[in-house]
């Protein structure tokens, strides 16, 4: 659970940075900060709790797992966008969806990268313990 909470705040921060970068790049829309932070935090809570449940099921094909997770993230982001009207209709619907999809993919890839790093650390730790055990015998 501690890891889930850390992940929620990490991806919330990441989403805010990306959103700020996009708004600066497009110089087309203004994001009211306080509401957006809470909405993005809410979206991340829903995303991470959902992923926590989705990851209980494992498939032989990693590609299917990745697809399912990305699809779930996009559905949550689209729902939140429709509910909170994140882009205030200053962009075309296609552009809005495009931005959401890009954000979802970027954030997902960053978290995948971080997760793989953690797994590698765990595996190295296990191998060191095995080496220590084998030296004793």
């Amino acid at each position: 659970m501690k890891r889930v909470i850390i992940n929620i705040f990490t991806t919330t921060g990441l989403a805010l940075v990306i959103l700020s970068a996009i708004s600066i790049a497009l110089t087309m829309f203004y994001i009211p900060f306080s509401h957006t932070v809470l909405q993005i935090l809410g979206a991340n809570v829903v995303i991470h709790l959902g992923l926590f449940l989705i990851r209980k099921f494992e498939s032989r094909y990693i590609f299917l797992e990745v697809l399912l997770e990305i699809a779930y993230i996009m559905v949550v982001l689209v729902v939140f966008h429709l509910v909170f009207d994140w882009f205030y209709r200053w962009l075309s619907p296609l552009a809005e969806i495009g931005i959401l999809v890009s954000m979802a993919v970027i954030i997902y890839m960053v978290t995948m990268f971080l997760r793989m790093g953690r797994i590698r650390e765990d595996v190295n730790e296990i191998n060191k313990l095995l080496e220590k055990r084998n030296k004793k015998t």
Binding site: I62, M112, I126
Partner: peptide
């Protein structure tokens, strides 16, 4: 030993 595979 344990090892990681390319597809995580």
């Amino acid at each position: 030993s344990v090892s990681t595979l390319p597809n995580s």
